[in-house]
Design a protein around this nucleic acid. Sequence first.
DNA 1: AGTAAGCTGGGACAAATGTCCCGTTTTTTC
DNA 2: GAAAAAACGGGACATTTGTCCCAGCTTACT
Lengths: 220, 220
Amino acid sequence: MSQLTMIHTNRAILTFIENQLTEAEKKDRVFLQTWPAGGHLLKQGQGNKYVFVQQTGLSKVHITEDNGKDFIVQFLGEGELLGEIEVIQKTPNLTTVTALTEVTAWCITTDYFAYLITHNPELNRLLLLSLAHRLNQTSARASYQQVYPAEYAMLKLLSVLATQQTSFAKKDLADYLGVSVRSFNRSLKQLRERSIIHPDSFDLYIERDVFERLMREYGE
Amino acid sequence: MSQLTMIHTNRAILTFIENQLTEAEKKDRVFLQTWPAGGHLLKQGQGNKYVFVQQTGLSKVHITEDNGKDFIVQFLGEGELLGEIEVIQKTPNLTTVTALTEVTAWCITTDYFAYLITHNPELNRLLLLSLAHRLNQTSARASYQQVYPAEYAMLKLLSVLATQQTSFAKKDLADYLGVSVRSFNRSLKQLRERSIIHPDSFDLYIERDVFERLMREYGE
DNA sequence: AGTAAGCTGGGACAAATGTCCCGTTTTTTC
DNA sequence: GAAAAAACGGGACATTTGTCCCAGCTTACT
């Protein structure tokens, strides 16, 4: 299986936007914009005028269901593309994208983006790759979050978090796992009691080899 | 939100394969093959030599986790494409595809498919649409299956099933919802007791208006 | 500094879901 | 058409997860 990534990044697309387009091509069709933490790049149910390529910062892609609960589809980091699905399908946004830190992103008008993907083979290829990758990630995650108890998914998450410098709000991590914050805390406590994670370390952390062993236990 | 589809179909791609390619183009690169119910079109972890376009029959795309449990990513019907993600990404299969009824599918060598998507704008467009659509569906489903209790997801499933003539094995429906067969049965029983579904009808069935009302109740 | 707002951690209980199991029914196979 | 295999339905119980709630702690604002 391909590596699980919690924060999706895409250097190739960022490089393309920054280096493959001339100033003349960008004109007023491609420009930078900044959102403060908490700002919305896209809103569920609305149409959007731009496709974005995140340059810096961290954001979350989430769906708010009718009962008010949130599900986090993924976290986006450097270079990731957003809003392109709606352009391809010509549908309103399925998701909301909210900045978690200050976010700077390239904005590309939907018209120009639509033009680019049909006329620029390189971007077309990068887009196909990005979609394929995200489809795999989404399926793989949906699968193990359904199939394993929450604690297992949490361990996976923690092992990924350990490689991250960023700190997340508990609520966001819980939403990502599709459990309540209470359950999230409960699992954390149990992991602490079983000395699997370090209560004293700066933040949640799990040793690589401990993680591997536990995964094997679940799999047996 | 776009309409939930339980069985993915794609007439456009099937039409493309059947009508847009000449016999000379097909040669030994595009041909029909048939699998009996239970046969595997793709196997998780393996590489594949062909991309398939299902012509007739019903199949399931599923992931078997290390603990032996299955998660069904989607059901495929007429025209749906499979195996293309692996070709785009050049990775082994993430999923297994198993025929539920007898399945007939066009087989396209991976080389030729890779050629087509870079040289045929029409197929390229259909592919982008298909990927975008499935990404939306997968995200939307992962979201509500995590966010709502199983019974809600089940109602959604039943309302879709009602439009289907095909009959599914309980195990497959349970795997699709990510619950045990026992839980599935329990929920069914409760729905029957609450007279929401008809115990006597040929199969599971739910009235459209009853469904709408229940959805509203969950959302409140 | 001082109050309000919002995280955080966890107790107590309720509800949902899983596991194990067994008897019945349906389907397959020879 | 009988035997074997698979699917079905549900009881009893264990485990997991959610809901409600409250008290302590941090952060933001004035």
